[in-house]
């Protein structure tokens, strides 16, 4: 699985995690500096956010170079349109995460459309795992680690069948039909598992949804 093992986090409650910032001086302050075209703020954004964005992109694409291209694209959009990013109260980091994930899925699906053969290869869960796991950060002190831990606590709370479906959908970018094929289960079962799984995640992640990072 591309999501790191969660067993070590079992028992930790998302709701009890402290509200805080992964930025040295707070997300809103960083955004204000980015709006003011402060290039040091850009460097800080890249240092702190890129490992997480790369984690998303590399986990799905299984290609470090292409993953870096996605992160560059997203950072460029953020820098060029920072006035619009988070302008309506949404935080900067969730915006970066969402755009990275969407861009990655766009590339993944374009790649699959281009090459059926590659689609077969990328559907193999073992492809790229070795390389990927070598470069993963496993450091509890990393900025944002507490969020990662909270998310894993929420994922761990799901029944295994729902967790598997959610991981394939959310962290590997598979569609309903691709998940059904991968797990060799009916399409309706996939939809049910995802609906239940995401529904539970909405509840369990609710305590951290207003974090401003």
């Amino acid at each position: 699985m591309r999501v790191t093992s969660t067993r070590r986090h079992a028992g930790q409650q998302a709701a009890s995690s402290p509200r805080g910032s992964i930025w040295a001086a707070g997300g809103e302050s960083l955004r204000a500096r980015l709006v003011a075209r402060d290039e040091r703020a850009l460097a800080e954004l890249i240092d702190v956010a890129s490992p997480w964005l790369l984690g998303i992109a590399q986990g799905m694409l299984q290609d470090p170079v292409e993953a870096e291209e996605v992160v560059l694209e997203v950072m460029t959009i953020a820098w060029n349109r920072i006035e619009l990013v988070g302008a309506e109260g949404s935080a900067l980091m969730p915006w970066l995460l969402r755009v990275t994930r969407n861009r990655t899925i766009d590339r993944l699906r374009a790649r699959r459309r281009r090459s059926a053969a590659l689609a077969v290869a990328s559907a193999d869960p073992d492809i790229g795992r070795h390389v990927e796991e070598e470069s993963r950060i496993d450091e509890a002190g990393a900025p944002g680690w507490h969020v990662h831990r909270s998310v894993h606590t929420a994922l761990d709370s799901l029944p295994e069948d729902q967790r598997t479906a959610v991981r394939l959908a959310y962290f590997e970018g598979l569609t309903h039909s691709e998940i059904a094929e991968r797990l060799a289960i009916p399409l309706g079962t996939v939809k049910t598992r995802l609906r239940l799984g995401f529904g539970r995640l909405r509840v369990s992640l609710a305590p951290i949804k207003d974090w401003v990072l």
Binding site: W52, E68, P94, E132, R136
Partner: peptide, 23 residues
Amino acid sequence: DLAWLPMGAAPVALRPGLSRRLA
């Protein structure tokens, strides 16, 4: 509600010089 869910993916260590190249 699911804003932080993508952070379930583990972070990846940046290759040397990548921060500078991205900037």
